[in-house]
């Protein structure tokens, strides 16, 4: 019972405080800047080496062949993705970049598949950037 004064003080102080819950869709809560969210893919930088698909632990990335440029491109299926960002790490060409986007809920499973369209893929040879790779 000797905790009663302390508990009561806490109760009274919470009466005058704002509620901790946020009205989410109206009031946005941003995750930490280092949060691992959805990946963004840049087809201009991709050479189609397939290291992202090879290192993906869940098989969320599959390689798809584009005949007009004669190169493969990754297809992301976010229904399987566990957001470990191993593909971001494995990409030697900086084609896959991390974002903090987390709102991926959808009614249609097909919307979770992200592939680049034929028009977006241009026959350019990307230049290899300076990036240190940790798995050889």
């Amino acid at each position: 019972m000797n905790f009663m004064p302390k508990i009561l003080r806490g109760v009274v102080s919470y009466v005058f405080k704002k509620p901790v819950t946020k009205q989410y869709p109206l009031e946005r809560v941003e995750p930490a800047p280092v949060f691992r969210g959805k990946m963004s893919f840049n087809p201009d930088l991709c050479v189609g080496c397939g290291m992202c698909a090879r290192d993906c632990p869940t098989g969320a990335i599959t390689m798809e062949f584009y005949p007009h440029v004669k190169r493969k491109m990754p297809k992301f299926y976010y229904g399987l993705c566990i957001f470990c960002h191993q593909c971001v790490e494995s990409c030697a060409w900086n084609a896959i970049k991390p974002t903090t986007q987390f709102e991926l809920a959808t009614y249609d499973k097909k919307q979770l598949i992200e592939r680049v369209s034929e028009q977006e893929v241009k026959p350019v040879k990307p230049r290899r950037p300076e990036k240190k790779l940790f798995y050889r």
Binding site: P31, A32, V34, F35, R36, F83, C84, H85, F134, Y135
Partner: peptide, 24 residues
Amino acid sequence: MRLMEELTGNRLMSAYNTIGGVRR
């Protein structure tokens, strides 16, 4: 949990350790 998110990138599934060191 918030500290974990700031440090590793996720609240629970840290994915912080990797073979040969840590990722961040």
